[in-house]
Design a protein around this nucleic acid. Sequence first.
DNA 1: GCCGGGTGTATGGTCAGACCATATTTGGTC
DNA 2: GACCAAATATGGTCTGACCATACACCCGGC
Lengths: 237, 237
Amino acid sequence: MNGGDGSREPRRAPAGARTRAFEEVLDRIEERIAADGLTVGDRLPGERQLAEQLQVSRSSVREALRALATLGVVSSQVGRGPDAGAVLTSRPDTALTDLLRLNLGLSTLSMREVVDTRLMIEQWAAGRAARDGGAALGEMARAVDAMDAAATPEEFVAHDIAFHMALAAASGNRLTSAIMRALRDAVRRYAIDAVLRLGDTAGLQADHRRIHAAVRDGDADAAIAAVADHLARAYPG
Amino acid sequence: MNGGDGSREPRRAPAGARTRAFEEVLDRIEERIAADGLTVGDRLPGERQLAEQLQVSRSSVREALRALATLGVVSSQVGRGPDAGAVLTSRPDTALTDLLRLNLGLSTLSMREVVDTRLMIEQWAAGRAARDGGAALGEMARAVDAMDAAATPEEFVAHDIAFHMALAAASGNRLTSAIMRALRDAVRRYAIDAVLRLGDTAGLQADHRRIHAAVRDGDADAAIAAVADHLARAYPG
DNA sequence: GCCGGGTGTATGGTCAGACCATATTTGGTC
DNA sequence: GACCAAATATGGTCTGACCATACACCCGGC
């Protein structure tokens, strides 16, 4: 409001007020989400309306919404109707994937750290799945069959991801599942290279069957060990 | 280029071209990072220059940069000189913290899931620290002393975070450390409430000392158990 | 009364051009 | 050489416009 043409006012806030306009918008929106108890599916006011309410330009509102979209909490639809506008969503996976992929691209995270983190999560999930009864057994078995039928490394990796995601999902923890998916998606190309390097997938499939059997038999220790062996084979350190 | 006033052209790309302009910018920047081998500290071209190079408006460039800033990979500085402009950084912690905090606000992640994830990471880190020799012992001890001296719950929690961060950092894995920090920051308020609820911090401090001792003695199993007991006390389920 | 199509309109997406605040660089002055 | 003022480059913001999209509404035909 005090930029651009006019600005007859001397200064709006002579002291403090270090936050940029779009950050103010960000805070206000977050505030409103908490105060009004908004949740997934609820709509935010339109960009023009928000701009007027918060007394900032539409550009600043858009930058704030862009940040929220990047974090996976809003999704914008054009057009009209109940589904149009900025709708609250929750896609931590997408956001996490982007975050990991870009930080890997900057070489600030090493592949070893990513694989180690994956090992941590999968061992934890495998132990839980073995103890809590394998709700994911069916899906895991289907993924193994699909990997047998896969014609290309890309296809194999796609079903491999499904297998490990089923295992992670069995933990019942959406946060670890989201991290797991982000890790897998971020290193998908690396996984394809690993399959090509190994030459054949018999060993990997044997590992998968061993993991599946351990979870089915409720043997947590065996499941954990099988996961460790599997990752050591796929990503030798 | 084809919006706004003019647009004498019928249509630039009648088929395909579903991506929004700022996404195109996003891809190009990521591409350039990979192609030119850019890394932390390197500068991106200015917003105006990028806009001209990519043939889009400065607004679109700004939205793309805002997204990258949200993911923690660029940081913008105003002014002039070698440090001004969009500089590549790497702050996965900040981005992760925002991501978790906002998704918690939307109630799509439960506190239990966050605490369970934290337990997973801390047990893993404690085991590693105990085995690999405790490089973090000094910092952990200092944090315990600082917690003894803390006058307010806020202060106590701040040093508590330092304690647990030191433990996580001992794993040598920056990714798990970043996740750990994000988890702690995202639930900071909740932690303060927990301290207030417990009334006194003697039990928590006893746990901290027990964890420290186990790491010092190289007893991984004891360290893991101590972490589990500590979190169970702080966040009863 | 019901249905189909045309029009209205609200929405996000984009563009262009301007001005502001900030911080360095540059050049002049003592 | 030291110091100060002007030039300049940068991100940050604002304004106002137009475009493409997709639902909402109304109106005529049946």
